[in-house]
Design a protein around this nucleic acid. Sequence first.
DNA 1: TCGATTTGATTGAACGTTCATTCAAAGAAG
DNA 2: CTTCTTTGAATGAACGTTCAATCAAATCGA
Lengths: 204, 204
Amino acid sequence: MPSDVFDDPTDTREKILAATYRSLNEHGYAGLTMQTIGDELEQSPSLVYHHYENKDALVLACLEYLLEQFESEFGNDAVDDPKGQLEEILEWWFATDVDDEWHGFLTTILELRARAVHDSEYREHFTRSDRIFKESLATVLRAGIDSGAFRECDPDAIAETLQTVFIGTVLRRSSTDDDEWLTDVHAELDSYLDSLVHARERSQ
Amino acid sequence: MPSDVFDDPTDTREKILAATYRSLNEHGYAGLTMQTIGDELEQSPSLVYHHYENKDALVLACLEYLLEQFESEFGNDAVDDPKGQLEEILEWWFATDVDDEWHGFLTTILELRARAVHDSEYREHFTRSDRIFKESLATVLRAGIDSGAFRECDPDAIAETLQTVFIGTVLRRSSTDDDEWLTDVHAELDSYLDSLVHARERSQ
DNA sequence: TCGATTTGATTGAACGTTCATTCAAAGAAG
DNA sequence: CTTCTTTGAATGAACGTTCAATCAAATCGA
């Protein structure tokens, strides 16, 4: 996702969101000041106040924008190859050699998630975004069950589980220097899916 | 763990750590000021500087203290009932009606973990603490394999996976308003352990 | 068409606050 | 008296936010 987002923002509001995102990426939330946003924007920090109420409103708007982007990209359209799609998602998630843009994106979102702990506006956002993301996973699973690629299982429970693992993975990757456990977890998750989700050989 | 920690700190340094922990719990890292620590301590903020270099050194010392506490409590002593112990850990983790002290503790640690994203000192701490915690889980698993309660499986990989799920769970709980997914994830994790870790009926 | 007027965008300077940190001096203990 | 502990006041930097002042473009009236 990170690539195409904010690629050619035409209007000022969008430019500001882009600058906010870049600034967030570079300095993290703790290092995010109206000044760095202004620098990134190559315009005065005061300009931002002409378009957004205050700093938090700005960051929330940025978050909202990214979510909309996700929705329009991965919005639940028809799933043609559930098994392949699930594998693809896992590959994506566990890729170790992934370019830093994607990892930076995840880390940025993660840092904002930490703010949700003590800020209800952020919490509401992530409650919603988790629901959307989970639904997106569950859709793939349901399609697989319908097509016989997956056995009769609880798509919602599995989607929630996958999401929890994903989130845990992102957090661990961003907050430790180790990476070796990644392949272990990936392998275990494959085993889990193999034995509980993927249809048994020649059962359909 | 939260209960007994900092229960009767005798010397000043420990009192300061206790006050830091309480302040962290109440206001979160973002709201942590030398002033609130002083208030909690019922002494002047300047006193803290007589004992600790600066704010970050203090928070890191606090984190370190909590980790030592964990090590001395759950340090790898002999495991007598691996299966029961594993279940106990899971119950603990997924308990929804848990008193807020435990949840507050996890949330506090989590918030500090978010700092690790942009601060290598914190990152080093969590790298180490993850390793310790994982080893603690792996010890239980290894004991189970030796005793025949668990089948031949990769204890390290499973421990890493469990830990990833745990961390993901804590993060999701602390950053969203939902809780329903908790039981789903717990159930899936049980299935996973049942089919891949627990020994088959009457196999030993 | 051309000047006047409004509107929105943009800026730089300034304000007020919060906070970590320092330090000289007071207090307590032995 | 000396040493360690503790304090209150002061410092200085960082930062979010405000605002009066420009400026360009659009709108309008005649």
